Each structure stands twice: as C-alpha cells, then as structure tokens.
Computed example of a mutant assay.
Amino acid sequence: MNPGYLYLAVAIVAEVIATSALKHSEGFTRLGPSLVVAAGYGIAFYCLSLVMKTVPIGVAYAIWSGAGIVLIALIGWLVLKQSLDLPAVLGMGLIVAGVAVIQLFSRASGH
C-alpha cells in the first residue's frame, strides 16, 4: 500500500478535529479550541504535503474533501444534534460514490 494514503488519513482526521474545534473557538476568542484549530490544521497541511509526494493531487484532494465533508456532517449530526435531510444524505452518498469510483476504476489514482 502506498504510504501516502496513511498520511492522507492522518491529514483528514487532523482537519476534521480542527474544523470541529473551529466552532468551539467562538471566533478565536477561546484559547483552548483556538490552539486545537491551529495545531490540527498545521498537522493536516503538513501531512497533506507528504501525500503529494506519492498520490496524484486530484485524487488526494477528492479523497480529502469528500471524507472531510462526510465526517464533519456526521459530527454535526451526532455531536451537535444538527439535522441532515434526505437530499443532504443523498448528496454525501454521491460524494462517497465518486471517491470510490476514482479509487477503484481510475488509472489516475496511481494503482
């Protein structure tokens, strides 16, 4: 397995943590969440820079953005009790399907 995908997973998790903390930073007026945001995005972009060494940029960004959208929406739903309607769920399903098609069938994915 390409080690870039491990870095990509770490980048995605760090970005999701940072984005989740962003809501709690209250416009960067709360120190703790603000530090989590800065550290999370720093880790995310550092790892993403390592990903770019071995994974095509379009593929990496499709996975990064698709996973981030779905994970943040799930956190919003599960933790913040925000609602997801059927069109939102269907749209996220299409995003996941698109990333799966790239990974499974596209030569651009580097397989």
Score class of each variant (00 low, 15 high):
L8S: 05
A9G: 13
V16P: 04
I17E: 04
A18Y: 02
S20D: 14
A21R: 00
L22Y: 04
L22F: 06
H24M: 12
T29C: 09
R30H: 12
L31S: 12
L35C: 08
V36T: 12
A38H: 10
G40W: 04
G40S: 09
G40F: 02
G42K: 05
I43E: 06
A44M: 06
A44C: 12
A44P: 09
F45S: 09
Y46P: 04
C47M: 14
L48D: 04
L50W: 06
V51T: 09
T54H: 01
V55R: 02
P56A: 13
V59C: 01
A60R: 03
W64C: 02
G66Q: 01
I69Y: 00
V70M: 11
I72P: 00
I72F: 04
A73V: 01
I75T: 10
I75S: 12
I75Q: 07
L80F: 15
Q82E: 15
Q82A: 13
Q82V: 00
Q82H: 11
S83D: 12
D85P: 00
V89S: 02
L90T: 13
M92N: 14
L94T: 12
I95T: 12
V96R: 06
A97Y: 13
A97N: 11
A97K: 06
G98Y: 12
G98I: 10
Q103G: 15
L104A: 14
L104R: 12
L104N: 08
S106A: 13
A108H: 13
